[in-house]
Amino acid sequence: MRDFGGIVERSPVRVARPGSAGEVADAVREAAAQGLDVVPRGFGHSTYGQSLTAGVSLDLRGLTGVEVGARQATAAAGTSWRDVLAATLPHGLTPPVLTDYLDVTVGGTISAGGVGGTSHVHGTQADNVLALDVVVDGDPVTCSPAVRPDVFDAVRGGLGRHGVITGATLRLVPAPERVLCCTIPCRDAGDVLRVQREVRADDVSARVKPSEDGWVFEAKAVLYGDGAEPPPGTAEAEELPYAGFCDRMRPDVEELITLGEWARPHPWGMVFLPASRAAAVIEPTLATMTADGLGLSGVILIKALRIGHVPMLDAPDDPVLFSVLRTASPGCASVPEMLAGNRALLDRARAECGTPYAVGSIPV
Rank of each mutant, 00 (worst) to 15 (best):
A278I: 14
V281W: 06
D83C: 02
G214E: 11
A189R: 07
R200F: 05
W262N: 08
D133G: 10
P316K: 03
V216S: 14
G354W: 01
D314Q: 05
D226V: 12
C332I: 00
T47M: 03
G233V: 03
V192H: 00
R178G: 07
G158H: 04
V204T: 07
A168G: 09
K303H: 10
A279G: 10
R348L: 15
S211A: 13
A275V: 01
A315L: 12
L339W: 00
I165L: 09
D226W: 07
D292K: 06
G6V: 14
H45S: 14
A304G: 09
L63C: 14
R2D: 11
R71S: 08
W215N: 06
D59R: 04
V39I: 03
D213L: 13
T327C: 13
A75N: 15
P241C: 10
A70K: 04
A228F: 03
P251S: 09
R82P: 04
L98Y: 01
A25G: 06
L159N: 03
V104Y: 02
E283G: 15
T183R: 08
G167E: 15
D37E: 05
V208S: 01
T285S: 15
I257S: 06
G233D: 00
T142L: 01
F245Y: 13
Y101R: 04
A25P: 03
I300G: 07
V173F: 01
L339S: 09
G5R: 11
E239N: 07
A75Y: 12
H91P: 00
G116C: 00
S205G: 10
V364F: 06
W268H: 05
G62V: 06
R207V: 12
F322R: 10
D37N: 03
V147P: 02
H122R: 08
A32L: 05
E352N: 15
G42Q: 12
A87T: 09
S57N: 01
D103W: 13
Q34K: 04
R264N: 14
G65I: 15
A73M: 15
